Amino acid sequence: MKQTVHKVLKSKEWDIGWISIGILLVIISTVISAKGNITLTTVTSFVGSIVGMTVVLLLANQTGKFATGLGIVGALLDTFNNYKFGLSGMMLVGIYAFFLYLKGFLTMGKKIEVTKVTKANLYISGAIAIGGGLLLYFFGSSILPKDAPQWVILANILVFIVQVVSQYLMVDGKAIGWLGFCLINVINLFLQFYIFISGSNPTALIYLAMTFMFLLNSIKALVLWYGFGE
């Protein structure tokens, strides 16, 4: 059973199906959000979303240099988009991702070598978590949802801090980083479902489906990076 799951997740058919559904969801959300008004940020957001989905799929398949090189492009697009949207906090996150991917591009081979977590990784993760907390303190207004229930704000804080730590661990070749992304996507499913039932965002159902797709990719990455079923 484990070998069958591993074989399916590692297959080209899975990857083609996953990225095809992801691109379709991005197209639908872009069309709904744009409402016929195509701007520069509409185009860069669309391209950035496609690049982002491609990067996480490549990373799940343990692709190193090419994935992180493409990740640099995606981080620059995210930084630009958040700048145009006035989201200073998220713009800083994009810059952080840029340097992470740059490090990966300069140090990784074609394939990511999965290694054990070291004490240095734990210390750096702690420093990143503290840095993420400070970022929320000073720029939280451009990251956290406004006028949201307390549980939504707390969930977003948890997602943000786990995300920046997990991204570092993933680019450093630590499988546990994908466990963090699984946690993030599960929490985001609840958040997107809350947004959907509250009726405050017409594209919430699309984002809910996209979050589910990202969760599937995180599970795939966990299976492959930990070698389950090999």
Rank of each mutant, 00 (worst) to 15 (best):
V47F: 13
V5K: 08
F99I: 11
F66N: 04
F228V: 12
S200T: 13
G71R: 01
L134S: 03
T63N: 08
W18C: 08
Y226Q: 09
F212Y: 09
L183A: 08
Q62C: 14
K103W: 15
A120P: 12
L58T: 02
A60E: 02
T211L: 05
A120T: 15
K10M: 14
L106R: 10
A155F: 11
F105M: 10
I130R: 10
W225P: 05
G126I: 12
W14M: 14
V164A: 01
I16R: 11
G22D: 01
K2S: 11
I95M: 09
T42E: 05
G69T: 02
N217T: 00
N121H: 14
I27D: 04
T68L: 08
A209N: 00
I16V: 15
A75N: 03
L183D: 02
Y137K: 07
T42F: 10
G17H: 13
F99A: 03
G140M: 04
E113T: 14
E230L: 08
S88W: 10
Q62W: 15
D147V: 06
K65S: 01
M91P: 05
L154M: 11
G180W: 01
T211P: 05
V114D: 03
V5M: 11
K174N: 03
Y194K: 11
V159C: 04
I128D: 00
G64F: 06
K35F: 10
L92F: 10
N61W: 13
G126Q: 07
M1F: 14
A60N: 01
Y137H: 07
V171W: 04
S20W: 13
H6M: 15
T79A: 00
T79V: 09
V117R: 09
F196P: 05
T4N: 12
F160Q: 00
Y137C: 06
Y123D: 12
G48P: 07
Y168W: 13
F212A: 02
